[in-house]
């Protein structure tokens, strides 16, 4: 559990960071909170020769409202998300999720940028970003581009980020007032990644579901958007039969790996349960 040798860089601007990353090539990695990267380096599963620490780049910080979206700087920590009233009012589900990530020590260091850029199917933020319809701003030597969260994840630790590119901010459309939301996460203990988790954001009209999006965490190589499951609940009052149907539709797209959290069969089963519970709780808190 001792990392290999590496050199350390601390740029002050996005431009310098991008320049470093593109000139140092494949062997360079951005360092955010380090709570995913450093454990991998200690196991020598990651052996970057260069670490480009983003903590000196002031432009990557901050949480602000821009029109109907909340823009979150990549280097905003999970703790900062929790401390933000703006997030609490507009994106309360983000608070709920951030509180379910590990413990205060991890949340003081871990950043939202690192969380979504990492590509680990166990991270909670990616499925939520898909559920909320968020997009990521990526900046590289050839300029900036925006990629929808739903287009970003390609496989475990494999994303749309090109070598030399940096994720600089996340833009999240604010859901309508009175929306219902819930994140149901089954984990073995504090500090564990999800055995299965489901995010739900929905709106209700006349006691029936008007709009709905469902995201799934750690139930496949990538976070999933359970579109069929979400479709199945539109226009219903989430009666037991509908919940069951939605869970079945969600389970149909899950392909988790067996691990110490349980066999595939179990993880899919509880994945379905998380979907049902999240739907019910989201509906209950919708206005």
């Amino acid at each position: 559990m001792i990392p290999g040798p590496f050199s350390y860089h601390r740029p002050a601007t996005v431009a310098d960071a991008v320049k470093l990353l593109s000139s140092l090539g494949e062997e360079a990695r951005p360092l955010a909170g380090g709570h995913s990267l450093v454990p991998m380096m200690k196991l020598r599963l990651a052996t970057p020769e260069h670490l480009v620490d983003l903590h000196g780049v002031a432009a990557l910080k901050g949480i602000s409202r821009s029109g109907n979206a909340i823009v979150i700087g990549a280097m905003a920590t999970q703790h900062e998300l929790l401390a933000s009233d703006e997030i609490g009012q507009s994106l309360p589900i983000l608070h709920e999720i951030a509180l379910l990530i590990a413990d205060p020590q991890v949340r003081y260091r871990g950043t939202i940028g690192g969380n979504v850029a990492n590509g680990d199917p166990g991270n909670d933020m990616p499925a939520l970003m898909m559920t909320l319809g968020a997009s990521y701003r990526l900046e590289g030597a050839s300029g900036a581009r925006d990629v929808a969260a739903t287009e970003f994840y390609q496989g475990a630790y494999f994303t749309a980020l090109e070598p030399g590119e940096l994720l600089t901010s996340i833009s999240v459309p604010v859901p309508p007032a009175g929306h219902g939301y819930a994140y149901e996460k089954l984990k073995r203990k504090v500090g564990d990644y999800a055995t299965a988790a489901a995010a739900v954001v929905l709106t209700m009209a006349d006691g029936k579901v008007a709009t709905c999006a469902i995201g799934l965490t750690n139930l496949s190589e990538t976070p999933l958007l359970a579109t069929d499951a979400a479709k199945a609940v539109i226009g219903t009052s989430l009666d037991p039969a509908t919940l069951k149907k939605a869970a079945e539709a969600a389970v149909a797209i899950m392909s988790p790996a067996a691990d110490a959290r349980g066999p595939v069969e179990y993880r899919k089963h509880v994945g379905g349960i998380m979907v049902m519970r999240a739907l019910s709780r989201a509906a209950a808190c919708a206005k």
Binding site: R188, K189, V190, G191, Y193, A260
Partner: peptide
């Protein structure tokens, strides 16, 4: 309730860190 040293069929330890070797915190 969960703490075990488990091996797979090939003899690999599958619970070799505190992520999988159940070490409860004050919360649990």
């Amino acid at each position: 309730m969960g703490q075990e040293i488990r091996y797979d069929d090939d003899g690999n330890v599958v619970t070799g860190s505190f992520m999988d070797f159940f070490m409860p915190t004050a919360v649990e």
